[in-house]
Write a protein that binds this DNA or RNA. Structure first.
Lengths: 209, 209, 209, 209
DNA sequence: AATGAATGAGGATTCATTCAT
DNA sequence: AATGAATGAATCCTCATTCAT
């Protein structure tokens, strides 16, 4: 009787094992942070022995960096660049998308912020990865702003961008803490409007000069 | 002149030891978070043996909760309620104070946010303490807003307050991450203005109804 | 106004403190054995700081030896040598007394047996004390037997005495384990009769020779 | 002749390691009891690091429970049910077997009794295991008694069984304490006869009614 | 591709004890 | 007569990681 070649099956299992490990690690890490994530805990959650985790990942650092990487990918897929003529509408659109993405896959930002807040001496790759991903987002948003309001000084662009991004972080945290008591959608709506208004008024000032 | 004998320093001095331990723990905890804070590290930093830490604090949880408690106290002292007639000025004043307090004693918020982001199943007393302290701040700000803009609906008050508090958290994080690249004072100035404008425009809508 | 001299009061408190410590130590030790009895536990149970325990007792060994000593005293008071002509009645009497004493103050034998079963290399004073107290009891019972049955060989005396004493230990343990399911009084009644019968029949054999 | 390479011995060998750990733990535990058995001591005795002990056993409780379980197995093998027509002979036979088993493998009962005497609030699995094993033995002996003396009331059966088992415990302890001074075989011979006589005389009383 | 077993370092916490007051 | 504070050694147990199979 014809049998499915063993190698085939095994390779497929390999993929699946990797996925199971990442799922478990994401769970644990976003629950307890970097130090709180022990290989033993991940092993128990995914059902594979600790040594198998080391077959798929070099070390703990590598594992958590992979978690960040994958969850950022998932997250990105949920956010697309909106188009249209009306800047206010487009910003509002963007805000909604980000809010919804955060509600659906909060792991990325939660774990990222946890890592970002730590200041330990040794390098943690997952932290570096998060920060660079975040930097990239920052740059793109700055570019969009420049396009919308060409009169704005670089200083104003940077200020506005930083405000836009980091206040959003704060709103996300509020939702994480407050749970159902917090209406993240409404907060992001407000945030989008405020940033837009700020951009308009700063642009006015610049143009008047 | 009679000199205080050296042995004196070696003598039991509960108050001072407790202080030294708290200092060390605050340092370590705001650098590495809850799990990253090992008693051995704190012991090394404060010069007292680990067992002495357990004389002053029930356990690690108790120690870190005490760190949060004390650092909140320090922080509060730095923020006083401003007075004056012009609401915009008063809000701007408040913003500056908070920004400066965050620059001077960032430990409280950094550790607090790290704890807040975790969602481990067991209770962490320091986390609970941070959240209750934060709740209190929230309530006070809401009260001030009600005073300024009596026409605002409770829903709007809550939305604005949450926005004001949590965006500030985000700005703080941006400063923590970005270091000298980030101008926290400017960010808080912008934030104060935006919240004020938002309050005014929401109040307008309410009054028009 | 006349005041009770301080020294007086203090000395009285000293006695009481010692008593409180011994009470607590007896409790803990008969619950958890020698190693399981920590000074901290005793301190918590009696309300005095650990250092106060060391004022009253040289060290842990000394404390537990004192516990054994005191509880043996209490125990002895409950057992008096019965008199009368009929040997069977006297033995039955004795049995009942011992059974009742064990029901009322079981700490002595429980802790004693726990200590006796251990075979650690270093000497434990409480163990030695228990064993010597037990030896003394053994000798007295042997003397009584010799009086009752002068014909018995020394070997028989020893065998019977050992049987009488150690089976009683076993019955006590059965009660400790079985609680209300075990009727210690009935067991001791049976035991008394069996030992008496054994003595009689061994004496018969000896006389016949 | 090809030699087994030395490295072989260093290779992982779960079964043997487990056995070595159990051997060491049995040694230590029957010498010092539950609390006195430290993992470090067991580790030193078996040559494996403490962390390896935790690979084979969940925790100390689990380890000591396993010791009890295994030593009971060994013990059981040494005691077989004797047959024959004469009840007195059969009981005497049984007594001898038990006495000899206790002399050869005393660990089981020594550790078991140590655990049984403790009354700590938290559950100790090894204790529970010992007690259940002991219960089973009790039930079997009661069944045998019922067969021998069908006229005996249940109360008498229970009394006799408890006496038979628990006095035996006591004799064992006497041997543990007294060492070579105590003739365990003679004590068990006497014990067997006394229990037999008691059964006969109680059965007589029952039949007369 | 996977895993049972092992391991040294380090985790939090408790230990019995001491000492200055 | 008593105690707050301190301390080094030991407690149980988990850590990240490796290695032979």
């Amino acid at each position: 009787m014809a049998e499915i070649p063993t190698t085939r099956r095994r390779r497929a299992n390999g993929e699946e094992s990797r996925r199971k490990i990442l799922d478990a690690a994401a769970d644990v890490a976003s629950e307890r942070g970097y130090d709180g994530t022990s290989i033993a805990l991940v092993s128990k959650k995914c059902g594979l022995p600790a040594s198998s985790i080391y077959w798929h990942f070099k070390d703990k650092d590598d594992l958590i960096a992979a978690v960040i990487e994958r969850s950022f990918g998932t997250w990105l897929e949920a956010v697309s660049v909106p188009d249209g003529d009306n800047p206010r509408t487009r910003i509002a659109d963007m805000s909604m998308q980000i809010a919804r993405a955060l509600l659906e896959t909060p792991d990325f930002l939660r774990l990222g912020l946890m890592l970002a807040l730590e200041r330990r001496p040794e390098e943690v790759r997952a932290r570096t990865m998060f920060l660079s991903v975040r930097d990239e987002a920052h740059r793109r948003i700055a570019a969009t702003m420049r396009e919308f309001a060409p009169d704005l000084s670089e200083r104003s662009i940077k200020l506005l961008t930083t405000y836009a991004v980091s206040a959003a972080d704060g709103l996300f945290i509020a939702k994480e803490i407050g749970g159902d008591d917090v209406d993240l959608i409404a907060l992001f709506e407000l945030h989008g409007n405020l940033v837009y208004d700020a951009a308009v008024s700063l642009a006015q000032v610049a143009a008047d000069r």
